[in-house]
């Protein structure tokens, strides 16, 4: 497996060491880019942090395949983010009392609180799962990987992954049902 593919696998597995390695290897490149395009060091840090999250979101898109280098992808993401931010700075800020300041309404607030509570419950429950269970759910639901891809990454059979995913989800389902949040 090439280093690029190993990094991709580490990012998919949500390993912090992958983020750290990307900072060490590519932050200076992005910093130079932002400075060259009229930004400052502080802004470069924000952009890099944001770019890492966009990178994580990009690789989870169904059918994503790494055709070049992660560094190239990260560079392109950072560049787009910075150009968008610069463009946004030129748009006048809406005056007070405009659409963005309208209250969400009681129903909207209640729904948002319920959603937040559900995410909190799921996060806690995921924390209680065994590592393999959490990894299967991460790959299947967050990374949108097929059973075959998960099986390859984890060294299981496809059938085992399917059953494991079902059981781990069933565990969460029971907790959520008992909570009456849904």
């Amino acid at each position: 497996m090439s280093t690029e593919q190993e990094w991709l696998a580490e990012l998919r597995a949500g390993k912090k060491s992958a983020y750290e390695a990307l900072y060490h290897r590519h932050f200076r490149m992005v910093e130079s880019l932002v400075i060259r395009l009229g930004g400052g060091r502080e802004q470069a840090r924000d952009i890099f942090q944001e770019a890492l999250l966009v990178l994580v979101q990009s690789i989870r898109k169904p059918g994503f395949q790494l055709t070049g280098k992660l560094s190239t992808l990260l560079y392109a993401i950072a560049r787009n983010l910075w150009l968008k931010r610069k463009a946004a700075d030129k748009i006048p800020i809406q005056e007070a009392g405009s659409l963005s300041n309208l209250p969400a309404g009681e129903d909207g607030e209640k729904a948002a609180l319920e959603k937040e509570a559900l995410i909190q419950l799921v996060t806690e429950s995921l924390g209680q799962l065994e590592d393999d269970c959490r990894a299967v759910l991460r790959y299947a639901i967050y990374q949108n990987l097929s059973h075959a891809e998960i099986a390859r990454l984890m060294g299981y059979t496809e059938a085992f992954v399917k059953v494991k995913k079902f059981r781990c989800l069933e565990y969460l389902r029971k907790i959520v049902r008992n909570s009456n949040l849904l």
Binding site: V122, T123, L126, I141, L172
Partner: peptide
């Protein structure tokens, strides 16, 4: 909603 919450949690 369950799958959405799991996605959000990992995010």
């Amino acid at each position: 909603q369950l799958l959405g919450a799991i996605e959000q949690s990992f995010e």
